[in-house]
Amino acid sequence: MPVDLIAQSINATPSRIEKGNMSVITAKVKNVSIEDQKQVMIRITADDKTIYEVRKDMPANKPVSVGPVNWTGRQIGLHNMTVQVDPVNEVPDTNPGNNIASTGCTVYQRNGGGSSSGCSTSKTSTAKSSWTIPYRYIYEIAEVNRPLWKTAWVDYSEHLNVSTQINTKQGIATDQAHPKESDRESRGSWAIIPYAKQNSLNPNEVTRAGYGYELKVTTNYSTDWETKVPRGFNETARPIGGTYIGPTPGEAIAKFYDRNGNFINSIKLERTSGGNTGTAVWELPKREGVFLDGTKVWERKVYTDKDWSDGDVTVKVYVTAEGSKGHIEACTTNKLRIFGSMFDDTQNVRGRNF
């Protein structure tokens, strides 16, 4: 009579563990037929290495539990756990392609994260991780319907690209003789533009002490995870499953430092466009600003201290992707030049509001 042995599922609980900790592996298999099968071999592997093997009676059309098996994560990375029914082809099976099921278990090592060490010294930064995963599949059906199995090791990777831009708006030329309401954004440009040109600087990265500036961060996350699963006979190789994503709200943070490199404060950035994968844009949260005449505005700016002397201050942007496979982090470094004080400009003078 026809017999179809099926690997229904395999689970690792928890599916993400710290190095040296333990996950419990359980599985379910089934004999789809009208006859019971006696002492069928069932094998559980981790990265193609056998960690548990047992023979079980498999009653007709009833799920059979396998395990639990305690597995200790000793190597950092993603590990492929599989359960395979009748791995040595003892039972005449009508569909050996469904004899195997897979799941993943990630082993990580806790680290400090968010430190300035290893931070890129430029406005752009790239973080990446790569890993290799084994897939077990049937590559050929030999004589008397005997499946031949093999293992393919497939390379995958993920990338997080981060670029940052400071904008003081001082690159917008103003006319002191004919001031406009819009000059409030760039009222120091009359002096800053020639200063920046003389010193080979971008005027939009120069400002007066006491003025504010915008910060825009662009991220791009990509991965080729499970785009290269081998097909094999009857598409035997089973995807491990799971989705990896890039930064989510709360995972892009700007940290501000004074001229001496002393930490001032940090601000979580808001995602203003895009999603968890592909390209996204992050900016400072909107805050209320108040002019000397009482006018209020909402803007995405952070303000320098009105008492700062000339020189460079630093902004570091840390972007993490906790939802990525490697929990990768990228960090950029941005310099902002202080040139003069807000009190050097007399048109549309604005008071500090923070």
Rank of each mutant, 00 (worst) to 15 (best):
Met41Lys: 15
Met41His: 12
Met41Asp: 15
Ile42Met: 01
Ile42Gln: 00
Ile42Leu: 00
Ile42His: 04
Arg43Tyr: 03
Ile44Leu: 05
Thr45Glu: 12
Ala46Asn: 09
Asp47Thr: 07
Asp47Gln: 01
Asp48Arg: 07
Lys49Phe: 09
Ile51Lys: 10
Glu53Asn: 03
Glu53Trp: 07
Val54Ile: 15
Val54Pro: 03
Lys56Pro: 02
Lys56Leu: 09
Lys56Ile: 06
Asp57Lys: 00
Pro59Lys: 08
Pro59Ser: 01
Ala60Asn: 05
Ala60Pro: 06
Ala60Asp: 02
Ala60Gln: 04
Asn61Met: 08
Pro63Trp: 03
Ser65Arg: 14
Ser65Ile: 06
Val66Ile: 15
Val66Gly: 03
Val66Met: 00
Gly67Thr: 10
Gly67Ala: 05
Gly67Phe: 03
Gly67Ser: 06
Pro68Tyr: 02
Pro68Met: 00
Pro68His: 03
Val69Gly: 01
Val69Asn: 02
Val69Glu: 04
Trp71Thr: 03
Trp71Pro: 14
Thr72Asn: 07
Thr72Ile: 12
Arg74Leu: 11
Arg74Thr: 09
Arg74Pro: 00
Arg74Asp: 08
Gln75Val: 12
Gln75Cys: 01
Ile76Leu: 02
Ile76Arg: 07
Leu78Trp: 08
Leu78Arg: 12
Leu78Thr: 15
His79Ile: 07
Val83Phe: 01
Val83Thr: 05
Gln84Arg: 13
Gln84Ala: 12
Asp86Gly: 02
Pro87Thr: 06
Val88Ser: 08
Glu90Trp: 02
Glu90Asn: 10
Val91Phe: 05
Asp93Glu: 05
Pro96Asn: 03
Pro96Thr: 05
Asn98Lys: 06
Asn98His: 13
Ile100Asn: 11
Ala101Gly: 03
Ser102Arg: 00
Ser102Cys: 03
Ser102Thr: 04
Thr103Arg: 04
Thr103Val: 09
Gly104Arg: 05
Gly104Thr: 04
Gly104Phe: 06
Cys105His: 08
Cys105Met: 15
Thr106Asn: 13
Thr106Lys: 14
Thr106Ser: 11
Tyr108Gly: 04
Tyr108Asp: 04
Tyr108Ser: 06
Gln109Asp: 04
Gln109Cys: 03
Asn111Thr: 09
Asn111Tyr: 14
Gly112Asn: 13
Gly112Met: 11
Gly113Asn: 13
Gly113Thr: 05
Gly114Leu: 08
Ser115Met: 11
Ser115Asn: 11
Ser116Asn: 12
Gly118Met: 07
Gly118Glu: 06
Cys119Gln: 02
Ser120Phe: 09
Thr121Ile: 05
Ser122Asp: 10
Lys123Trp: 14
Lys123Asp: 15
Ser125Asp: 07
Ser125Trp: 00
Thr126Asp: 09
Thr126Lys: 15
Lys128Trp: 15
Ser129Ile: 06
Ser130Glu: 11
Trp131Phe: 13
Trp131Lys: 04
Thr132Ile: 14
Ile133Gly: 08
Pro134Phe: 05
Tyr135Leu: 06
Arg136Cys: 12
Tyr137Val: 11
Tyr137Arg: 14
Tyr137Met: 14
Ile138Thr: 02
Ile138Asp: 08
Tyr139Val: 01
Glu140Phe: 10
